[in-house]
Write a protein that binds this DNA or RNA. Structure first.
Length: 426
RNA sequence: GGAGGGAUGGCCGAGCGGACGAAGGCGCUGGUCUCGAAAACCAGUGGGGUCGCAAGAUUCUCGUGGGUUCGAAUCCCACUCCCUCCGCCA
């Protein structure tokens, strides 16, 4: 959520920035809702003041034994109270409408973000590793997985449906190895605290991160409850500190969490239908940070590097792009995508998205901190990024480490996690 | 599933119709003392909104939402969450 005062005071600048990301906002409506709300607040508060003063007076008169005067005043106050009740309802409605309106406005892109319309305008920042030169025709991960009997998409479809996966044997082991490997690196080397959160969260939590109210169709909802399956650990982990006041001394707070992620993928019919690129359920290790505003961009860089390091240790080629204004997510102020080299597609595909949300989520979720010097509480900055999407890492290993005989060698760092297995073959 | 108990400020904890945004303690900040620190002592110290350049004014906020009342942390109702006991169960 944006600061309504910022919109009020810098409307042209806000409009320019929101336009740059293709957001349509009705500024006249903003003004009307904001002014209407302020006006009614003023009215109600004036009446409340009268009532408070009057009621106190009634008490005094009673104690002094002036019953008649007290009674008369009581009658007066009765009327004021009923007025307050009526106006109060209007006030609640005005404030709710205003908040609902504000919740639908996306974040402002940071000034450093390149302006653009869509993913074609994203800017490559750096590349790591050389895509392998195959001296045979490489297979895609679906074929490799099938031939080695470690990935069974047909049976997964029988169990559940399209866009689900059944990992088998060393395939299941590899998925588990990757999860453990990532968690170990981030906790031991990068200083994150491991958490294992619920895989469902309530409406408030989803509003906090910005997934609701606008993107409900992307989520799986649990019937007869206000719980949704999480589409990313970002939701439960960011909300760990919802409605809290943190100490500046404790910042930055860094969490790493493994969770499965559930996405309805509404609107992506026909997109990436083959293989495990786009699934309704996939595993992910997520990095989340809470930072002071001063340090958040530094933390954004290091978070992205922490994610990149996993790919480097695994020897998987990748590149990093900064998303342009038009391609960023709703809540983000700046996002880096890390893209993995996928031989079968002869291109790079997203494997991690690292964002700085600045105070956008913090304002929605009321996550603040007390400055060391004292003074007013301030909103923290929240950040997160995949470190990494496990299914796509699995895919990367299968495709990049495949051999001409159909086997897949295991990257050295994973061998201990694979119980000493160095190669998956028939 | 059945029976009870509870939810108060950054934390602990009192209050149970009017002078209560709330005792006391802890923590934090400043000061006294000290070469310095600790201890002790003194003082200050919640959060959000509206108005205001500010000082400040005002209002809301004692789990959430309703109700009773001139007036609610305090009484009533519903809901949520936590705890104890019984039953069931991975």
């Amino acid at each position: 959520m944006l600061d309504s005062k910022l919109i009020e005071e810098n409307m042209l600048e806000v409009k320019r920035k929101l336009d740059s990301r293709g957001a349509e906002v009705d500024y006249d409506q903003f003004r009307a809702l904001d002014l209407g709300r302020k006006e009614i607040i003023k009215k109600v508060e004036e009446l409340e003041r009268e009532r408070n003063v009057g009621s106190k007076k009634v008490g005094e008169l009673m104690r002094e034994g002036k019953k008649e005067e007290a009674g008369a005043l009581q009658e007066e106050m009765k009327e004021i109270s009923s007025k307050i009740k009526n106006l109060g309802e209007l006030r609640a409605k005005a404030e709710e409408e205003f908040r609902d309106f504000m919740l639908m406005i996306p974040n402002l892109p940071n000034d450093l973000v390149p302006v653009g319309k869509n993913e074609e305008d994203n800017v490559e920042i750096r590349k790591w590793g050389e895509p392998r030169d195959f001296d045979f025709t490489p297979k895609d991960h679906v074929e490799i997985g099938k031939d080695l009997d470690i990935l069974d998409l047909d049976r997964a479809a029988k169990i559940t449906g399209a866009r689900f996966a059944l990992y088998k044997g060393l395939g299941a082991r590899l998925e588990r190895a990757l999860i453990n490997f990532m968690l170990d690196i981030h906790t031991n080397d990068h200083g994150y605290k491991e958490v294992l959160p619920p895989f469902m969260a309530n409406t408030e939590s989803f509003i906090g991160t910005g997934n609701l109210p606008k993107f409900e169709e992307d989520l799986f909802k649990i019937q007869d409850s206000n719980f949704y399956l999480i589409p990313t650990a970002e939701v439960p982990v960011t909300n760990i500190h919802r409605d809290e006041i943190l100490k500046e001394e404790d910042l930055p707070i860094k969490y790493v969490a493994y969770t499965p992620c559930f996405r309805s993928e509404a609107g992506s019919y026909g997109k990436d239908v083959k293989g495990i690129i786009r699934q309704h359920q996939f595993n992910k290790v997520e990095l989340v940070k809470f930072s002071t505003p001063e340090k958040s961009y530094e933390e954004h860089e290091s978070l992205t590097q922490n994610a990149e390091r996993i790919l480097e240790l695994l020897g998987l080629p990748y590149r990093v792009v900064v998303l342009c204004t038009g391609d960023m997510g709703f809540s983000s102020a700046k996002t880096y995508d890390i893209e993995l080299w996928v031989p079968s597609e002869n291109t790079y595909r997203e494997i991690s998205s690292c964002s700085n949300f600045e105070d956008f989520q913090a304002r929605r979720a009321s996550i603040r901190y007390r400055p060391k010097q004292g003074g007013k509480t301030k909103l923290v900055h929240t950040l997160n990024g995949s470190g990494l999407a496990v299914g796509r890492t699995f895919l990367g290993i299968l495709e990049n480490y495949q051999q001409s005989d159909g086997s897949v060698t295991i990257p050295e760092v994973l061998v201990p996690y694979m119980g000493g297995v160095t190669k998956i073959s028939n």
